[in-house]
């Protein structure tokens, strides 16, 4: 084999995720018809669009959670079933495993991949140290606050070093304070790991705040209306939301969104 040296050059970083000719219908309703999308490596990409346009469906298809009717998706040049996915669900309460400790929850992806216990423990400890997590994780998930549970869910999603991290409305079940906290932690995770991250959001401010680019989707059948980039340097802070560039990008997105709703 030629690729002795582990190199990311199998695909260029610009077309890290490729979606080609994606088709998906639900009960006769066409959601995606011949949908194409190319996304670069190492960025945070937000998906924003009107209700029911299939934002969550798109990442569910891209992560292999639901089957597509037709089409092809590759991540890092590999077909979907061979790529490693991290996924954070909207509802942490219904996706963490309450019968095992938070620590065992975080280590679970390593366990199903057959990583031996000692190595598992080492990698989890390393992860916790990296992100400066000081919670007593021997407790059960339901013994933590909502934000802490979502944080546990995020740690579980990144522990196995996935190719892509998907987040489905990660803030929607959180109060404002917790949203700020999780946003901060997500930024930390990203600045540390440069993990390709795709976030679905129904809140425009959340969508823009962390993103390198924002995908604006249309009503059904869903098209990509525009991909708006937001190049402000990280770390972004609570002051970011009054930064002129942030305001400009946000209103540009809003304008495109309004335009789309009028059609």
């Amino acid at each position: 084999m030629l690729n002795i040296i582990p190199s990311p050059t199998m695909t260029t970083t610009a077309d890290f995720i490729q979606v080609q000719g994606l088709c998906k219908s639900f009960e006769g309703q066409v959601l995606y018809d011949d949908f194409d999308l190319t996304l670069p490596q190492g960025q945070i990409i937000s998906i924003f669009g009107p209700n029911g346009c299939g934002k969550s469906t798109l990442i569910n298809l891209m992560s292999g959670l639901i089957p597509m009717d037709r089409g092809q998706i590759t991540i890092a040049g590999k077909p979907l079933r061979r790529s490693r996915i991290g996924y954070v669900f909207q509802n942490y309460r219904e996706t963490l495993f309450p019968w095992i400790s938070a620590l065992d929850n975080i280590a679970y992806p390593l366990r199903v991949q057959g990583v031996p216990p000692k190595e598992r423990q080492r990698r989890v400890e390393q992860l916790l140290a990296r992100f400066d997590i000081k919670l007593d994780l021997r407790r059960y998930p339901y013994q933590f606050s909502g934000g802490q549970q979502q944080l546990i869910a995020i740690l579980r999603a990144v522990v196995a070093e996935p190719d892509v991290l998907f987040l489905d409305e990660p803030f929607s079940a959180l109060d404002f304070e917790m949203t700020l906290y999780i946003r901060e932690k997500l930024q930390e995770v990203h600045m540390e790991s440069h993990l390709t991250t795709i976030v679905v959001s129904h809140d425009l401010e959340d969508a823009v705040y962390l993103a390198d680019s924002i995908l604006l989707l249309s009503k059904r059948p869903t098209r990509l209306v525009q991909q708006v980039s937001f190049a402000l340097a990280r770390p972004r802070t609570p002051e970011t939301i009054v930064d002129p560039e942030f305001v400009r990008v946000k209103s540009q997105c809003l304008e495109i969104f309004r335009e789309e709703m009028r059609r």
Partner: peptide
């Protein structure tokens, strides 16, 4: 929901 979560983690 938890079954899906396990599936996506590679179980």
């Amino acid at each position: 929901s938890r079954i899906l979560a396990a599936k996506v983690m590679g179980a």
